[in-house]
């Protein structure tokens, strides 16, 4: 297979034809942040956090879905790229409700981690927040207020679990993750495959934690 020569952050390198900028960067030990990308899933380019600067390109390009072309000159961490990534996080935070401090998944949340890396504080963009009731069954808890619409769960449900239960519906501000044709989460909607939970980059999908419901026997009284 043909080798494609490119320059990435000033260093000459080459990769197989068809690999994406992101993959090549990873092979070269350069870390580009991602939120909606996962090697196992088809790329969608939904979150834009993986953008890089390519010389001659009018706009920044999404590295997770752009294949390398001969002679490409790529900057993965230029000031322009970093500033744009910061704004992207701020925009994601604009309608994202809840406080990281109160979130169960804060420690494993990619969004919070990226916000810290990029020095994002309170979002300067203030808009309506997305409020949705939390839904749960014994296998999964869905808190759509935390969702950033990266569509990882949708793709994982289709492409890995081969179920296709999860989808994305409606438009613009109303866009949300739905179950089939927007059914409420029922007892038997989801089994415990957990695949979507493991790919969710925020606190939206998690294992339900029922503290008091699991209580059996006499209450423990300590005097």
């Amino acid at each position: 297979m043909a080798e494609v020569k490119v320059t990435i952050n000033g260093a000459q390198t080459s990769g197989r034809e068809g690999v994406t900028i992101l993959e090549l960067a990873q092979e070269n030990g350069i870390k580009i942040p991602t939120l909606c990308y996962l090697t196992e899933l088809s790329p969608t380019g939904a979150c834009r956090i993986c953008i890089v600067e390519v010389e001659g390109s009018r706009t920044l390009v999404g590295s997770c879905h752009t294949p390398i072309t001969p002679g490409m000159i790529i900057q993965t961490h230029s000031p322009k790229v970093l500033a744009t990534r910061k704004v992207i996080i701020e925009l994601l935070f604009a309608s994202h409700c809840g406080f990281c401090m109160l979130c169960n998944k804060a420690n494993v949340c990619n969004l919070r981690e990226l916000a810290a890396d990029l020095d994002v504080g309170l979002s300067p963009f203030q808009t309506r927040k997305r409020f949705y009731p939390i839904e749960d069954n014994p296998y999964i808890q869905i808190d759509r207020t935390q969702c950033i619409l990266c569509r990882k769960c949708v793709r994982a449900c289709r492409e890995i679990a081969e179920n296709g239960i999860l989808g994305i519906a409606y438009r613009s501000f109303d866009t949300k993750i739905v179950i089939d044709n927007d059914q409420p989460l029922a007892q038997d909607t989801c089994r415990d495959c957990d695949i979507c939970i493991s790919v969710c980059p925020t606190g939206c999908l998690s294992k339900p934690k029922k503290l008091s419901a699991a209580k059996t026997g006499k209450p423990l009284i300590i005097c």
């Binding site: 289709r158 296709g164 999860l166 179950i179 089939d180 044709n181 927007d182």
Partner: peptide
Amino acid sequence: DLPVSEIYG
């Protein structure tokens, strides 16, 4: 042969 969720979307 597509998921219902896709068509609904």
